[in-house]
């Protein structure tokens, strides 16, 4: 085997091994399905309070604040009034707040909505498929999605009105 040929052989073998190495590292670090800031928000279809089918894609062109909540979650209850205020304040500004109830009976959720007196749309993820797709573990979790349907902020935990304002302005940039 000539010297030239040998070098190409070695480059070839090392190249293949390098690809395998990069792939190994990539596949171990990347968690498939886990959403990150900058990803497109996956579409989904749920029922709203009137039992109508609604999809996220319907809201394209609007900034969406997607709030995952449950009636049993104390911080969710706490941040509801602030969410309502943001909804009222930016309604005319093409901002939608969606409260996404995680896997509860509609009856249970409805009485909670009456208690906290919110008027923004509530969608019901009764089979928790959307919750799973959006990898929601800790509640509340709020996704801020921009006009183009791209996730700009993923916030876990309770937010104050000021924090919401700030994250919303980050999203709209």
């Amino acid at each position: 085997m000539g010297k030239e040929k040998r070098i190409y052989m070695r480059i070839g073998v090392l190249g293949i091994l390098l690809i395998a190495l990069v792939f190994a590292i990539y596949s171990s670090i990347s968690k498939p399905g886990l959403l990150k800031v900058g990803d497109e928000a996956p579409n989904f279809s749920l029922k709203d309070r009137e039992d109508k089918n609604v999809t996220l894609a319907d809201l394209k062109g609007k900034t969406v604040i997607l709030n995952f909540w449950g009636t049993w979650c104390e911080p969710c209850r706490n941040e509801m009034p602030a969410l309502e205020k943001i909804y009222q304040k930016y309604k005319s500004d093409d901002v939608v707040v969606i409260g996404l109830n995680v896997g509860e009976a509609k009856l249970t959720a409805e009485q909670f909505i009456r208690q906290v007196e919110v008027t923004f749309p509530i969608w019901f993820d009764s089979r928790k498929e959307v919750t799973k797709r959006y990898s929601v573990g800790k509640m509340p979790t709020t996704y801020f999605i921009d006009k183009d349907g791209v996730i700009r902020v993923i916030k876990t935990g309770e937010m104050t009105e000021r924090v919401m304002e700030q994250l919303l302005s980050e999203t709209k940039q």
Binding site: A20, L21, A24, I25, S28, I29
Partner: peptide
């Protein structure tokens, strides 16, 4: 972790 996978891959290489 990336470094553990790298070690394993290095064994392979």
């Amino acid at each position: 972790s990336w470094w553990f996978v790298t070690l394993m891959a290095m064994i392979g290489i």
